[in-house]
Design a protein around this nucleic acid. Sequence first.
DNA 1: TCTTAACATTAGAATTATTCTAAGTTGTTG
DNA 2: CAACAACTTAGAATAATTCTAATGTTAAGA
Lengths: 146, 146
Amino acid sequence: MSPVTQDRPYSQTLTRLREAGLRPTRQRLALGRLLFDGGDRHVTAEALHEQAQAAGVSVSLATVYNTLHQFTEAQLLREVVVDSARTYFDTNVSDHHHFFLENSGSLMDIDGDKIAVTGLPQAPEGTDVARVDVIVRLHGAPRQAS
Amino acid sequence: MSPVTQDRPYSQTLTRLREAGLRPTRQRLALGRLLFDGGDRHVTAEALHEQAQAAGVSVSLATVYNTLHQFTEAQLLREVVVDSARTYFDTNVSDHHHFFLENSGSLMDIDGDKIAVTGLPQAPEGTDVARVDVIVRLHGAPRQAS
DNA sequence: TCTTAACATTAGAATTATTCTAAGTTGTTG
DNA sequence: CAACAACTTAGAATAATTCTAATGTTAAGA
């Protein structure tokens, strides 16, 4: 395990992991690659696990959950709450919002600077606004999105 | 069952049930009263179940779930998705949004006409906007809200 | 009022997503 | 390369919710 033949860019996953203080293990590198190579994605733990299997990467579901949470803490991912049945993780960590196709259960990003939310009342005394989420729920899905 | 001595208004639960085509059973009337007497509320199934027990009303948890869902279908309640761990039901079915205190897990309504969301892109072809949810997530809870 | 059929409730089992545990494995550092 | 902390993992555990199948209730008609 030393002759270097990395045919894929590793999406700086290694660097990102280091910066986050996470050891670059085989599993984390593989999952990082699946997540960050190629555009923005919205995944559930189960879905990522399956994708990993399909890609021939052997990772346990527990590790997928651990990794998703660690990536989220490290700001490499963001959690999106749209469905009380499952948790989605979003590789887009910049300011943005979502369309949610209730039929297919898929998400689409809405650029943060396309939307403005005005008239928000002050947050109650003693609290800070951690985030404002706008979720546009859609019915009648077209074809599968991300 | 005719001398009128109804010390509580029943919040027209009976009427509402009839209109929704739901038989006014003891359980539904009791839950309806708990939900609709007194201001707007945000409840989880477990919480409502406990409240019912505490009020001396014997209802099974299964019935609480059934009832909450039936009430939701009948537009007497609205489901609020803010937390992937539990489902909240809101007695306020008018157009509005929410503050969510992540520490305490409590919700507060934000009047629909206080807030405006502008710049929403068109919904993808073949889909309709079912609803736009704005969730303002707060950290550092003050004292318990609804 | 009595009967009946459709509708409701319920206890407990089942399901599902997620977390935990305890044991084995691997990465890093000296 | 030793040693230890950090990781991974199988499988058990948990928690919210749904399902099942048996029992109870309601509404309507004779």
